[in-house]
């Protein structure tokens, strides 16, 4: 048996059409699924949407400029350092200690204390704090 007769006899038309449709439908479905795959993946990757109200940080208060000529403030700053030293000390030791604690304007501050008489010179570069 040959020709169209053979094809019809073996149900060829239906088999070929069905086969072609199945392949097309299957691969089209797969194409659709993989076209959505990245959206699905993104869905899992996305962090949870939680709304948290965060108060805006208050602007930092403007730092007061240090005034080394302000005697009261300078005494207040240097008194703890002087207490660490002996009752009579050389200015170099006070200077080193002030540097250690990163105090500002060390030279000016020490001069203010000396000029105000809060650091009393004992001679030979030795000083004593007077209240």
């Amino acid at each position: 048996m040959y020709g169209f007769e053979a094809i019809s006899h073996h149900n060829g038309w239906v088999a070929a059409a069905t086969g072609a449709c199945i392949v097309f439908a299957g691969l089209s479905t797969l194409a659709f699924l993989i076209s959505q795959l990245h959206k699905l993946v993104n869905l899992f990757d996305r962090p949870p949407k939680v709304t948290v109200t965060v108060a805006p940080p208050e602007p930092p208060a403007a730092a007061q400029p240090e005034d080394p000529l302000d005697l009261e403030r300078t005494v207040e700053r240097y008194l703890p350092l002087i207490e660490e030293l002996d009752a009579e000390f050389v200015l170099a030791d006070l200077y080193a200690l002030a540097q250690k604690y990163h105090l500002p304007h060390i030279h000016l501050s020490i001069r203010t204390l000396v000029e105000a008489g809060r650091l009393e010179p004992l001679g030979d570069g030795v000083f004593r704090f007077t209240a």
């Binding site: 040959y2 053979a6 094809i7 073996h10 088999a15 070929a16 072609a20 392949v23 097309f24």
Partner: peptide
């Protein structure tokens, strides 16, 4: 998928040839 149509066309051709 489209390129697989050759399979089914030839299937018919082979049936026609016996």
């Amino acid at each position: 998928a489209a390129a697989q149509m050759g399979i089914f066309c030839t299937y018919l051709g082979a049936l026609a040839l016996g």
